[in-house]
Design a protein around this nucleic acid. Structure first.
Lengths: 221, 221
DNA sequence: ACGTCCATTCTTGTATACAAAATAGTTGAC
DNA sequence: GTCAACTATTTTGTATACAAGAATGGACGT
């Protein structure tokens, strides 16, 4: 019965939001959640406040908590910032990576290759996360690692949607190859540019995003 | 007696931390704070959790909350990320600024000039915040504005320390001039580079930071 | 005399009770 | 018949009570 209750609640509710179990716009009732998880309102409230701090829900005074729907433009902005932060991480990684980082990055890249060849979207989704995480870690900036991880986590559901687009997996993997090469050869600016382009939702990819969002909306509605 | 109590507590405690009233390493006792502010422990706990989410304090299970001391390297990393985000904001501002943004930016720049000429560090500190905020807003990316504002706020006390360094105010103002010119003339990449350099704690400025931190530490200790 | 173990106390974590505000439903008036 | 106002219910916000774990101090043993 330690503080873990709040952590568990936070993770469970967050998961529920990310898996669309709690759809955007839904009201999160404290009493209902408390009953559902068999705890009192107190830890539920604390968990909700943490989610509010992350930005997943919005708590309006005396009006309760609702799941936030970012909207396509907002999501675009978030990817825009993510692109810049990842570019920075790549740039630092190119300059600072150690032998261990190099090994880890190549291993993650190899796993992505396998998943892409097997055409396994779920596996690629997971391996891709580890690939990017390897870059963050190679930047050797603990604060940047935290910032990147937080935003990456926040964008997780939309990243998953993007993989649905035809050939995105293969394209993504081939972009990874260039990024790995740039980082390991120490070309900081090239790593930055390639990562920026890899993340950014530009041109066609924005309409793809809007389209997949609309699909999900229809399915949930 | 609305939810404002938590907000007020959060702001007051945050202010106490930023003004070194609660020094790094201090334990924040829930009951003591509750008595001090004339409320119960419940809103105090919620305020502390929000501060924990911001990163100002750390809550260890069953061990209470302590004020975080980032340490010079950590602060350096935070400025490093801030530099990149501000550079991004400047780049976007150069491309997207409206006439209203232009007016606001020039006004803020003018106020900085007055404060710098008057050698008024407190006024410059305040006007400088508005100057940078004007750039964020001119980027027209609501998410970036939020991210920049949050990190700017987090770095506020150290920014203040930096102004103590001899001539930093005048130097800062002259850097602003170049930034304004780059943004208003639409030179995105130059705006990015200048802002990056303006923010980054490079070379001598890092030792300056460490020195002023040590001074503050000695004064508080 | 010093170290270790146990008990007491203090603090955090959770539940419940109480208060205040917002929403919804009903009734009355135009 | 529709709109508005008032009341009742639901739900959030705060306080207090209770439980459990950690820190501290004393006593006992070596």
């Amino acid at each position: 019965m330690t503080e873990n209750i709040v952590q568990k609640l936070r993770d469970d509710i967050e998961n529920g939001i990310l898996t669309n179990q709690f759809a955007p716009g839904d009201r999160l009732d404290e009493m209902q959640l408390a009953k559902q998880f068999g705890v009192s309102r107190t830890p539920v409230r604390e968990a909700l406040m943490q989610l509010s701090a992350i930005g997943l829900i919005e708590i309006r005074p005396r009006r309760g908590a609702v799941v936030v729907e970012p909207g396509p433009h907002r999501i675009y902005e978030m990817f825009e910032v993510m692109a810049e932060l990842e570019g920075m991480a790549g740039s630092l990684a190119a300059r600072r990576h150690t032998d261990a980082d190099r090994t880890e990055l190549l291993a993650a890249h190899g796993r992505c290759e396998q998943s892409a060849n097997a055409d396994d979207a779920d596996a690629y989704y997971y391996d891709n996360e580890l690939f990017h995480r390897a870059i963050y870690i190679a930047s050797h900036s603990s604060f940047l690692i935290e910032q990147c991880s937080a935003l990456h986590r926040r964008l997780r559901p939309y990243r998953r949607l993007q993989l649905r687009v035809r050939n995105r997996m293969k394209t993504s993997y081939s972009e990874h190859a260039g990024i790995v090469e740039a980082i390991l050869s120490g070309e900081a600016e090239r790593a930055r540019t390639l990562l920026r382009q890899h993340i950014a939702v530009q041109g066609d990819r924005f309409s793809d995003l809007v389209a997949t969002l609309a699909q999900r909306e229809a399915r949930a509605g």
